[in-house]
Nucleic acid binder design. Structure first.
Lengths: 417, 417
DNA sequence: TTAGGGGTATCAGTGACTGAGATCCGCCAG
DNA sequence: CTGGCGGATCTCAGTCACTGATACCCCTAA
């Protein structure tokens, strides 16, 4: 295990850093406005003078990241020239590595999926084989997409945790056999020739929300990732919280039901032992809602059974309704633990298992979260579904690259040592 | 309750902001080095050029915030001139409002307590009377301190939550009767003529640690505030997490014992119903460790009984040891919930009840937190006691002012709208 | 057709950082 | 005791990015 690092002191900033930061601020403002923004609007929004906006706009136009999308205006005065993001200005490749299925996307600058594919993750315990398969699929996807490789800013990987962000390694995830400190980032960088970033799957999902999620991805929020496991991404003031090693968002052992099932951690009633799809499916079998035993607990089998469970609940099966409802109560408790600790005012739900849960959960969870909020007299807590879709992991992986390259993170201003 | 605010987009930065930020970066580096730093050392640490360091050092010397503290060097070459923080360069007044006792400090630039006082918080349900009393005490303290009022940067208030940070109000804290949306910041600003900041007590404690806590106050950490209630301050990358309304750190309803006592929130085994001093004292009475019944549950009475309980444990009373030990196990679970969610690698304990817990807790909690860590294969989690002392709340309140004025927060770089 | 208002570009100035060179200071060798 | 050397700090002039003021452009309304 690594030595505890003495955090480096704050670094200063300089003129090139400042210019670079302001450029990303302007690009970000344009990115968040699908209809585009004029220079005078940009000046008002970001606080820089009109001619700074002109200077920087010129540079963005030269770099082909934005374009002039016509004029707008009805009163006296010169019509405004609308500046919009040029979707073909930059691309990123995203890969979501899941023990069962690996998803690939090529994303454009706006955050739209230009190309998509999905393969079954090779089994066994040979990470090298998996990496080779992934690299081959990436190359094929890029070729098929027709995208100019020079326009591809890089490759992002959403991986199951735990990870070591600084080393770029995956460290013994629960459902990936043989993945003992696998240097995934460097291996894929070498195999593909693309600049590569690895991040945890729930963090990638949160980045997807900030980049491509619309209004729900702004400011501060918690992203509840409903997957094979349940985790959360944390975004505070438009900046994703990753933590010391990249593993923030580990909530599997929050106790949400004192009377709940025993957990492998020694406690009982944890999120992991009461709320995850596999547990709900088992309860459904036990209650006779679903047929037979579910022995194969692979992702696809669980997803199929889980979808059936949700369909039963939607069709009015009282037992199925009770199972889903009870899980909503428990998930809401986990949410409250996090929202109370961080004092955020928005919770976004997403992940591969979210779609069939969304109707029930959005009906129940907002009120439960409100009741559990320590700040309910001060502000509401908005609970919404993701604006991104089910491939939030892979889209998020690609967004890691776009965020790294273009997001106006305050870290961008600081000199590197 | 307030409407949900649309988060404002990121603002840009400009030259004056940049200069101001770099000045605070240099001041911060000097502040963190009690022995002082030379210009060449500063250049290396913050990444700015030697003549920028010279320019900014000149300005700090002119503002009387630092001084040249002699020369150092043994080899060839001109000896280095050591620059040190001038403790008398700036002062701040801090007040920790507690339902039982209100503590006052005047803090100098280094973070040393220049003057200190304590009064019994007036009872009843008239916030106005409390405010008047506090203002009078502040004026007297400043006068007695002999500090030049022109050197006082402002007044910080550490208040029990919940608070509305934007409005500067205190919103119905559990143990302050009649405090229904009291505009504490503006009232005290007007009564004292000092620029005033209000923050939650646990957040103030965390700010104290970052400012005056030494190495344990750097980087990212969670500050466990052991008070009448148990809360936590959160610091990520040297920046305190306050949350949407200033109420981050609310952990009273994390479930840490599925078999624990019922809580007023409807659950059982919460931090609030199992770990707080009042609960431990009640258990001690029940177990015969302490005499009689504890009916008066005021702060001082609880503190006295709690000290007796800890003394009994330290003296070898097995029942007392069991009570304290069990609470350590439970507190460690709450800590793990937060450290896993945020992936931090340091936990700092402090608060008025910390001193007598420290020996037992520092013996037990590190290993428990390590076992409960999802990232134990990647990094350790350091568990330490505060470097500030018991008046961490009041010191933190004063540090709010110093932090607001001098800390190199990235927010300082951004233009205001 | 002209005036006016709003939007954008241009010009020259400002603020802060920085590369290069000068000056200062102390140690060490001759 | 003196001069050379290396390191620290200061000075000079240049660079970069932002900005106030002004000019130009464009459209509507009278």
């Amino acid at each position: 295990m690594t030595e505890i690092r003495q955090p480096s002191p704050r670094r200063g900033t300089n003129l090139p850093r400042m210019g670079d930061f302001n450029l990303t601020v302007i690009l970000d403002a344009i990115r968040r406005s699908p209809a585009g923004l004029s220079r005078v609007e940009l000046a008002r929004i970001v606080g820089l003078s009109p001619q700074t906006i002109s200077n920087i706009s010129r540079r963005l136009l030269d770099q082909d990241l934005i374009y002039e999308a016509g004029k707008e205006g009805t009163g006296p005065g010169k019509p405004r020239t609308m500046l919009r993001l040029k979707s073909s200005g930059m691309y990123a490749v995203g890969v979501h590595l899941d023990p069962a299925v690996t998803t690939f996307v090529v994303l454009d600058l706006v955050g739209a999926v230009v190309k998509h594919s999905r393969i079954k993750t090779p089994g066994g315990s040979d990470p090298g084989a998996v990496i080779d398969t992934i690299a081959a699929e990436i190359k094929q996807l890029v070729t098929e997409s027709g995208v100019d490789p020079a326009r591809i800013a890089g490759l992002g990987i959403a991986s199951p945790g735990p990870i070591d962000l600084e080393e770029g390694t995956v460290v013994d995830p629960p459902l990936l056999l043989g993945w003992d400190r696998v240097p995934l980032r460097d291996a894929l960088a070498e195999a593909t020739g693309l600049s590569t970033i690895v991040d945890k799957d729930v963090t990638s999902a949160a980045v997807a929300e900030t980049w491509a999620g619309g209004p729900s991805g702004a400011g501060s929020f918690v992203f509840m990732y409903m997957g094979t496991g349940i985790g959360c991404g944390i975004v505070l003031n438009d900046e994703v919280v990753r933590g010391t090693s990249g593993n923030a968002g580990e909530i599997g052992h929050i106790i949400v039901d004192p009377d709940g099932a025993p957990c492998d951690c020694g406690m009982r009633g944890c999120v992991k032992s009461t709320c995850i799809p596999q547990v709900l499916v088992a309860r459904a079998v036990e209650a006779g809602v679903l047929d037979g035993s579910v022995e194969a607990v692979t992702g696809p089998a669980i997803q199929e059974s889980f979808t059936a469970l949700c369909a039963a609940a939607a069709a009015g099966d009282a037992r199925a309704e009770e199972i889903i409802d009870h899980s909503a109560v428990l998930v809401a408790r986990a949410v409250s633990t996090i929202t109370n600790a961080l004092d955020v005012d928005r919770v976004v739900f997403g992940g591969p298992f979210w779609t069939c849960l969304s109707q029930w959960y959005l009906e129940r969870i907002p009120e439960l979260v409100r009741e559990g909020s320590a700040t309910r007299k001060i502000h509401e807590i908005e609970v919404v579904g993701t604006g991104v879709g089910e491939d939030v992991g892979a889209i998020g992986a690609a967004c890691l690259v776009l965020e790294h390259t273009l997001a106006p993170r305050s870290q961008r201003l600081l000199l590197e040592g």
